[in-house]
Write a protein that binds this DNA or RNA. Structure first.
Length: 358
DNA sequence: GAGACGTGGAA
DNA sequence: TTTCCAAGTCT
């Protein structure tokens, strides 16, 4: 049987087509790539990355054969960099598989690194027309409002309830269309803060609309606490060269690069920072003058606010051999490394000042 | 199961 | 300006 919700949703979808580059293909590689890019990411933000990455890595083999550095560089600026590292790992998983082709069952797709229940259902339906219902933020929102469900979507009970409901509502003859329809509907009509209830096809049935609880739904129980961190960057440089290092810890921006940093839990006066560094074994010990000090920059992220300051010091202030992990590179090569936006912004400003002074 | 993980657009 | 949050997954 097919529910009236499903029938009307499919009608809406047919009348409101939405063009996106990954919708012109049945290539599971490209569909998988688009789904990873779109995790927690707006279509408009992911679109250019999809174009760039499919051009750079046209097949899963190209991606698997790339170096992790290249993959991270391609992902630079998109955020949630674990996605890029998992994407790369999954590409290797796929090409090393004895069957030698993209996995084509829900369970095997789910087994790929970085692919959870949502992405597995999306890939299974879009690439292979398998009857699996997607459950993402759009689906939570649309279903919680339409059916007036106030169970928290991020609780175990809520997740189970919504998955089961989504499974029942799925048009099993048309899983790709149905999944695309409900996500588009959530993105274009049943929006989080500015839903288009006035023109909504479900105005007569929607419980939230009828009970004036549209803005209470969906219910989320968790609230992210914001943590504060202070990053004191040491920019060792001369006209031609600079020292950078790669972030390798299980922490934000893993795999990207930065300047050598001293992290503190509270504000660190620049003089104290310099004093601390000058006491390390790597400081040459001569009386070094500081080139310049940046203002404190507040970089606000979803779960933490990072206060950053950059202290520029002549590269000659550091003793050889360099500390483990430090890379002395030509400034012309900076563009070949991946950096978090915080660092990219600093570099861009630096370049602009250079240009401006000439 | 709670907490961690980025960025940029919209209100 | 600040706050919210977008096609989630991993640990």
């Amino acid at each position: 049987m097919i529910f009236s919700f499903t029938r009307k949703l499919l009608q809406w979808h047919a009348a409101n087509p939405r063009s996106m580059p990954w919708k012109n293909t049945k290539d599971p590689y490209k569909i998988w790539l688009s789904e990873i890019i779109l995790q927690q990411t707006r279509v408009e933000q992911g679109w250019p990355y999809y174009e760039r990455i499919t051009k750079k890595f046209p097949t899963v083999k190209h991606l698997a054969n790339a170096r992790e550095e290249e993959v991270l560089k391609a992902w630079e600026g998109l955020g949630y960099y674990t996605r890029a590292r998992n994407l790369h790992a999954a590409a290797k998983q796929i090409v090393n598989d004895p069957e030698g082709k993209f996995p084509s069952t829900y369970e095997r797709i789910l087994n790929l690194k970085g692919v959870g229940p949502y992405s597995a259902a999306a890939i299974a339906s879009f690439a292979f027309d398998l009857p699996h219902a997607v459950v993402d933020g759009n689906v939570f929102r649309v279903l919680s409002r339409y059916f007036g469900i106030n169970e928290a979507v991020d609780s175990a009970k809520g997740k189970k309830l919504f998955s089961e409901l989504a499974r029942q509502l799925l048009d099993k003859k048309n899983p790709a269309d149905y999944n695309q329809a409900i996500m588009n509907f959530g993105a274009l009509v049943c929006k989080p803060s500015t839903p288009e209830c006035a023109i909504c096809i479900f105005k007569k049935q929607c419980i939230a609309y009828k009970t004036d609880t549209v803005f209470e739904l969906p219910v989320k129980s968790k609230k992210a606490a914001v943590r504060y961190r202070w990053f004191n960057f040491l920019v060792l440089e001369n006209d031609k060269e600079v020292i950078i290092e790669k972030r390798t810890a299980k922490d934000i921006w893993k795999g990207l690069h930065q300047f050598p940093v001293l992290e503190t839990v509270s504000y660190q006066a620049q003089s104290d920072f310099l004093k601390a560094w000058k006491q390390t074994a790597f400081f040459k010990g001569e009386n070094i003058k500081v080139n310049g000090i940046s203002k404190v920059i507040a970089h606000k992220l979803t779960h933490q606010t990072i206060f950053a300051q950059f202290i520029s010091v002549p590269i000659s202030a550091v003793k050889k051999p360099l500390p483990e992990g430090w890379l002395r590179i030509k400034k012309s090569r900076l563009k070949t490394f991946g950096f978090p936006v915080l660092i990219s912004n600093y570099l861009a400003q630096f370049r602009n000042e250079e240009d401006g002074s000439k």
